[in-house]
């Protein structure tokens, strides 16, 4: 697959700490990639380096087919986590300004501003001062300004973390749509958001990339499922019995439900059903839970 951007050996040291400890990754073109990690993992630092706002201590960032010393800002759109706008401007003025400094002509910028305002849903507020905007509207304006020059790569720093559920939904839908036009890299510490729109994941922990790949591949790799069995009575007794079944190594009783993490679902299910049938266990619920992204994340981080 063509990669639009590749990063090798990227390091960033501050005076008294290392924020990024030598990461390598590449962004496949046309995909939506999530940069996931807990707070302080180095997500913002990486995005800022890619956007050209910070200089790396070491390592290289190459934009596909571009000279290393070319101004790659032209091909990149960026939205910081807490965008600060010149609040005395109207949204239209700011979009025009952003477009023009990004190299659009006045007419192009005006047309793009109208278009994008509609796409992100701020048409009605276009001529209002930004100081009157709500958080959600600012975030939409932020996305609009980031893509006004039709960049090939869109970098978003925690685009939905600070939004209410409705705003979050809108932005995710918008990303879903933008995915068709450009490569998107966004950072988040909220796993569900990543799961929803992303094709690829980069798991960042403590300045290092612990895991990278497509969502499917990662799921497969960290596949562990949990079988949940619910008994009508004598839970403790059956817990002991379950523990003795072959292929079951650990099980716990949590809120009336016995949870059994298993590697081989088919095998474990067979054992349980067999024993249940022979001894007529009073099972009232049987559930199979596949690993969530969160489990996957915890696993990768603890590795």
């Amino acid at each position: 697959m063509m990669s639009i951007l590749s990063v090798t050996g990227l390091r960033k040291e501050y005076k008294n700490m290392t924020a990024v400890r030598g990461v390598d990754f590449s962004l496949p073109e046309g995909k939506c990639i999530a940069l996931i990690g807990p707070n302080g993992a180095g997500k913002t630092t990486i995005l800022r380096i890619l956007a050209g706002l910070l200089k790396q201590t070491d390592g290289a960032v190459t934009f596909s087919g571009k000279e290393t010393n070319a101004d790659i800002r032209k091909f990149i759109g960026y939205l910081p986590q807490y965008p600060v706008f010149p609040s005395w401007m109207t949204a239209r003025e700011f979009l025009l300004f952003s477009g023009e400094i990004a190299g659009l002509t006045k007419e192009e910028a005006a047309r793009r501003a109208e278009d994008l305002a509609e796409q992100v849903g701020i048409t009605n507020a276009l001529d209002k001062r930004i100081s009157d905007f709500s958080g959600g509207m600012k975030q939409r304006l932020g996305i609009a300004q980031a893509i006004i020059h039709s960049p090939q790569l869109l970098l978003l720093d925690e685009p939905v973390s600070s939004l209410d559920p409705i705003g979050r939904r809108d932005v995710l839908t918008l990303l879903e749509r933008l995915k068709k036009e450009m490569t998107i890299l966004f950072s988040t510490h909220i796993l569900n958001d990543a799961e929803e729109v992303c094709d690829e994941l980069l798991l960042l922990h403590d300045g290092e990339i612990n895991e990278a790949g497509s969502m499917e591949a990662l799921r497969e790799k960290y596949q562990t499922s949990v079988i949940e069995v619910e008994f009508q009575e004598n839970r403790q007794r059956y817990l002991e019995k379950l523990k003795q079944l072959p292929g079951i190594t650990a099980c716990t009783l949590e809120r009336q439900i016995i949870k059994i993490p298993v590697a081989d679902i088919a095998q474990a299910r067979k054992e349980i059903f067999q024993a249940a049938a022979e001894e007529n266990w009073p099972i009232i619920g049987f559930n199979l839970n596949r690993a969530s992204l969160e489990d996957l994340f915890m696993k990768a981080v603890k590795k």
Partner: peptide, 9 residues
């Protein structure tokens, strides 16, 4: 504010 401006070319 500079962050939004300087990230443009």
């Amino acid at each position: 504010i500079a962050e939004l401006i300087l990230v443009k070319p």
